[in-house]
């Protein structure tokens, strides 16, 4: 523990670099995953789309079961074939987006479907268009559950982003894997503790944001 502290204090700029890399990869991944997951969640939540929804959610679940290492490798090959950069940032972010999908997509879908039809009919009965029903009623009411999904995905993504170091994307995976190779306990501790702290910080700030954007009428 002491060695870890000593190393970190002597190599502050190095730790900062890992932190920035880690945050950047996870941040871009989370942002994209949120947009994709919420948009798809909305699209598959409509009336009469239950079978499409089942299919999409099933697919997302299957993707979750693919080991992250295998997915990193698969994407490296695919991107390489397409002439894109096969290592580093791009494949790392793409893999993380795939992992973040399921909680966001599933929570968005479930939250929208759970809105009491009476509210939707009340909205329509007062002259709201489908779009207005979505933005004025369904989404605000679904917000707490969607947020839970987002937080879930964020913690997941920040954790898995560690493995992205293996394909040259940097982040706190770098000290962990280096420590594993060289039997350096201090490096492993620095990487591991940092990832946990990062995840807790991000989750905490999301909790604050959630409190801020959720209507007071929906809180217990």
């Amino acid at each position: 523990m002491f060695e870890a502290y000593q190393f970190a204090s002597q190599h502050l700029e190095l730790v900062a670099k890992w932190a920035v890399e880690h945050l950047l990869i996870s941040g871009v991944a989370i942002g994209s995953a949120a947009v994709i997951g919420i948009v798809f969640g909305i699209l598959i939540s409509g009336q009469g789309k239950e079978r499409v929804a089942d299919l999409v959610l099933y697919f997302a679940e299957i993707m979750m079961t693919v080991p992250s290492l295998a997915l990193f490798g698969l994407l490296m090959l695919l991107l390489g074939r397409m002439g894109l950069s096969a290592i580093g940032f791009l494949p790392a972010v793409m893999t993380l987006i795939v992992y973040g999908q399921l909680p966001i997509l599933r929570n968005t879908y479930i939250a929208l479907r759970q809105v009491d039809p009476a509210f939707i009919e009340a909205g329509r009965g007062m002259g709201m268009s489908e779009r207005q029903v979505l933005f004025k009623i369904k989404l605000p009411m679904a917000l707490p559950v969607i947020f839970a999904g987002l937080r879930n995905a964020m913690v997941l993504i920040i954790g898995i982003a560690t493995i992205a170091a293996l394909i040259g994307a940097g982040g706190f995976g770098v000290p962990i894997f280096r420590g594993l190779r060289n039997a350096r306990m201090d490096l492993i501790i620095i990487g591991g503790v940092s990832v946990s702290v990062l995840a807790l910080l991000v989750d905490g700030s999301m909790a604050l944001l959630e409190r801020f954007v959720t209507s007071k009428g929906l809180k217990r």
Binding site: A118, F119, E121, G125, M126, G127, P140, M141, S215, L218
Partner: peptide, 20 residues
């Protein structure tokens, strides 16, 4: 939608929007 905006509508169990 135009029609409905000119006809007041009060539903069973009230159905007030909880987030408003």
């Amino acid at each position: 939608n135009e029609l409905r905006r000119n006809i007041g509508y009060a539903i069973q169990e009230v159905g007030l929007f909880p987030h408003m």
